[in-house]
Write a protein that binds this DNA or RNA. Structure first.
Lengths: 200, 200, 200, 200
DNA sequence: AATGAATGAGCATTCATTCAT
DNA sequence: TATGAATGAATGCTCATTCAT
């Protein structure tokens, strides 16, 4: 009476997982639908039962990753109240999420290269917006710290973007050098630099 | 020796300049040879008199940019001896070069996304090597500073990569936000943070 | 003998009815199996329990329509003996049948376009044969009329094909213009023209 | 200095000619771009230098045929003034044009099947409009004839559409039976029927 | 019997590259 | 040297059909 039953949402995730590996390895452009199908262990046509296009998979993967990052961040931020600890929590959430997608981390470069040109409306771009959101979050923590007397009188927005930028830069190197790069140490060194640098 | 040679080289640069604009605007993949020809004001076939392939233009552009960066850096480093000043010189050279290619800056994202996967030999990748070179340069300056008693006892390699990463991150934001991003201020704030952070 | 058989046949007709609507609306090519299933209110896979292929449905619909036409014609011809009345009966049967499939009438164009190329044997085509059959039928009536002295000495075959052709042409316009085309009037005008034109 | 020079317009016609043969033989749907390229003796990609899509070729062919028909009609109508002769001129122009495209005549069926569903605006269809134009032309000639006392008091619009329909029907048979169908005789018989039928 | 999830053959179209002029 | 017309390899996507349930 009824055909096989599948958990659509679960299968979407399975395809995204497979696709992320291939995207990471070869880049968006060099990744062929056949490769994704092969990696997912399904037929080429089956992909289209779950995604409208190659692009749809790509941005599906992006959203998947961002959602994970947000979840991790929310969890970590929830536990701490001290501004300095909050900064550390944010930094750790960023890296923690990437760690989850370890072998797909190269995909970040494509997210950047593609995202930068994908515009939501005539003037703005979703990647910019994402950046602005995080900058605001960090800036608000810095303000908290200033009021609490933990940080000196810095320009919160500028320092926030500096911190954000530095994190990106570390992520780049971490992705680039993988195992060979002692990200933990760099991270603690960086965090230290930041905290010392902005301490009151 | 013949003047033709000079013309050839000049025309290659003209094509690279045109190509960089188009690559920056649309990305490597979405850029068609026709677009480049149009932007350069020449015929599509003519491009092949100067470059072997689209890739050849792309990496030609990359080398062009890197050479300019190195030239700027050499010039600035030549003038200073103080380790702290040297760090500032390096940071400024990075941004100065990007400023030169202002309207093509988005091309950086493609250099990253493509470069990360372009391997010179089985194990190593030229982008990695580039990174390692700059890290060594910065680390050596940090060592100088430590010996001179200007910097505290930091792990030079780790801090060097942290500085490099932070610069990348700032560049990303600068590219992303363009005019709206006060890179000079962020830069000075960052430099300040670094120097304070590592000061003895 | 088992009631199942009746159900099967009934369901085939139900599917054909649904399919005809979709074929008529979108054409053979643009009609997808999913559309037919949807229109028939059954699952896509179920169609294959009753038909071998899309083509099978299409030609099933054709046969269904032809059979209806023949039935109507037989009924009408059975009642009359006068050659002129017989001609009118044939003409009316053609249109009567189409009227039955009113909202599927566009399907006729696909029957033509596809049928013309579907060959039963290497040399001949079933649509041709159908045509020849009807031509013979009309010609035989014309001969009757000539013998009875009702029609003048015309070339029966030529006039028959002319009448047949004219009917097709009227049908085309009727389908094309639907409600806006007063087919009854055109029909009576046409019949009049024919009868006057061939009257002894 | 300059690449090979081609007469773009001439080459478009060459491709249309080749395409018409293939369309006629296999129908729009079964015709593959490769077939057209092969028939035209060019590469598959070259077609796209001259046409945007398969559809573009198809409707290009339609327009080509219609333009030829109009040219022929204009030429023939120009020479005559008598209403009865004008009718004959129109009929002959229709057939003359088809004769020109003799071996492509089956394409007419696809023009019908596709054209009927291709709408220019929400309510109307270009094929309908074409029909209406020709009906008007014929009706105006009939009116002329009535005024001149050559035709009896018929409903010009109805008779015009009848004549148009009959022509279509004859064309169908002519296409269907080709050589075996004495279209000249059928035509003269039909013309005769019409003229006798509407004679005052 | 009924279903819709899975599939891959098949095709329109794109575009880097070639080459006749 | 410069050009753009010509090309076909390459690929995203469609959809009739199959088949596990």
């Amino acid at each position: 009476m009824s055909p096989r039953i599948v958990d659509k949402e679960e299968k979407k995730k399975q395809i995204i997982g497979a696709a992320m590996q291939v995207f990471a390895k070869n880049g968006l452009n060099a990744t062929k639908m056949t490769d994704i199908a092969l990696a997912a262990g399904i037929g080429k046509g089956t992909i289209y039962e779950y995604f409208k296009s190659k692009d749809d998979i790509f941005w599906g993967a992006f959203n998947f990753m961002m959602e994970d990052m947000e979840t991790q961040m929310a969890k970590k931020l929830f536990k701490v109240t001290d501004p300095a600890e909050k900064l550390v929590a944010i930094i750790e959430a960023f890296f923690g999420s990437l760690e989850m997608f370890q072998d797909s981390s190269y995909i970040m470069f494509d997210f950047w290269a593609e995202g930068i040109r994908k515009r939501d409306d005539s003037a703005n771009n979703f990647l910019k917006k994402l950046y602005i959101d995080y900058r605001k979050l960090i800036a608000s923590i810095l303000e908290e710290g200033k009021i609490a007397g933990a940080f000196r009188d810095i320009d919160s927005n500028i320092v926030a973007s500096t911190i954000l930028g530095a994190m990106d830069g570390l992520i780049l190197q971490w992705i680039l050098f993988g195992q060979d790069y002692d990200v933990k140490k760099a991270l603690s060194e960086f965090t230290n630099m930041v905290l010392v640098g902005i301490k009151d």
